[in-house]
Computed example of a mutant assay.
Amino acid sequence: MKIGSIELEGTPLFLAPMEDVTYKSFRHICKQNGVDVLYTEFVSSEALIRDVEKTRLKMELEDDDRPIAIQIYGYDIESMANAARIAEELQPDFIDINFGCPMKKIVKKGACSALLQDLPKMQQMAAEVVKSVSLPVTAKTRLGWDENNKVILEAAERLQDIGISALAIHGRTRSQLYTGDADWTMIGEVKNSPKIKIPIIGNGDINGPEKAAELLKQTGVDGLMIGRGAIGRPWIFNEIKHYLKTGEFLQPPTVAEIIAQIKDQLRVTADWKGNETTAILMMRRHFARYFPGIDNFRDHRIKMLQATQIEDLDKIMQDIVELYGDLRVDYTNVSLK
């Protein structure tokens, strides 16, 4: 598939943009594990225009990130166009518009998935962003506002008409938030509509290689996007690629191999933030998702989540390696909920 002039071979795998997750060090570790396309955390157009430092930091890009998109969101069309121009100056490979985030604090301002209730405004906003930059522009959205208003096919046609280069679709409505099961039937309907010519990327509930293969066969989408399934399991991208290519499963990683990845991610985070405690706090969401299903592991996890210094965390991780190092960790039945 292509996004503008970006050529992506086979079925490319995308790391979904996630607030407080897809920052620099997590992108680094996912890239090490086979992801093809990355996104920054989503950034507010209003904060970007005001040059808020925290927002700027979210858009710091590294050479090994590429290809990567800066994802922006907002409710005001002019602000979104201005934000896209500012983002373009940081030289991502493309700009992505967030039309999918369902969180109340954002939706109540009329941004993200709120625009699924106003498709003409969604289309106008996307059109102005496309006109404001020379980079390709993509979008990410949901099936619709609620069960009675699944407007994704019309939304896709409208966005294609004004020049959106690719569309990622999460298989839930806004009202579902992240509950229930993702519905890939409508994603397939969009992909296979004779009116749709742009690449369609499917997203939602991909929790392993078999699920990825099943959904790809069901829908024929051009790419697969993984979000929560990569937290605590960044090697999921290599697992999926290997399975799609060979039909065979990679061996699960050992505890020692996982600890090595955690240390790498922690090192990059600490170097970036320049503060051990801040780095550890940022990593806690990831610590909570590693090592599922290991007997008698709860106390070790608690110690990891309570540590505030890297020296202390290193000792905890060394103890874990000594106790469990050769044990392979099976993620097969891990829930994303």
Rank of each mutant, 00 (worst) to 15 (best):
I200N: 05
H300A: 13
E276P: 03
R233I: 09
T246Y: 09
N296D: 14
N238V: 05
K245D: 11
A256I: 07
Y290S: 02
E322G: 10
I310T: 03
M282E: 15
P199H: 05
D271H: 15
K195W: 13
I302L: 12
P209C: 05
K191S: 10
H242D: 10
T246W: 10
I320Q: 00
A256W: 03
Q318C: 12
E214A: 11
P292Y: 02
I236C: 00
T308C: 15
K211T: 08
I259R: 00
L244C: 02
P234Q: 06
F291M: 00
L266Q: 07
G204P: 07
R267T: 15
L250K: 09
P292V: 04
R267C: 10
E248N: 10
D314C: 10
H300S: 13
R328N: 03
G204L: 07
W235L: 02
M283P: 04
G227C: 08
D271F: 14
F287W: 04
I198N: 03
T277L: 14
K273E: 15
M225Y: 07
E276G: 03
D319V: 15
I262M: 04
M283Y: 05
I236S: 00
K273Q: 14
D271S: 15
D314Y: 06
T246S: 02
E239T: 04
P252Q: 04
H242R: 07
E276H: 05
G223F: 05
K211R: 13
I302M: 14
W235E: 05
I200F: 12
P292N: 01
T219S: 05
T246D: 07
I198M: 09
R267A: 12
V268Y: 09
I302Y: 11
N238S: 09
N207C: 13
A212N: 03
I198F: 05
R267E: 13
P234M: 01
H242K: 12
F249H: 12
P199D: 03
Q251E: 15
D330L: 01
N275I: 11
G232S: 06
K263Y: 07
T278K: 15
Q218N: 12
N275T: 12
T254G: 00
L215V: 13
K217A: 15
P253R: 11
D326M: 12
M283G: 04
A270W: 12
G227I: 06
D222C: 06
A256P: 10
W272H: 14
P199N: 04
R298Y: 11
A260S: 12
K217P: 08
R284K: 08
Q318V: 10
I310H: 07
N296I: 11
K211P: 10
I198L: 09
Y324T: 00
K241D: 01
K241R: 08
L244G: 04
E322V: 11
D319Q: 14
T308Y: 14
G247C: 06
I198W: 08
L215P: 08
P199Q: 04
I302H: 09
T308G: 11
N207D: 12
D222K: 07
L216M: 09
G227W: 01
D205C: 05
F297W: 01
H286C: 04
N203L: 08
L327C: 08
R284E: 03
L305Q: 11
T308R: 13
I259C: 00
L323I: 14
Q318T: 12
F291T: 00
Q261C: 11
W235F: 05
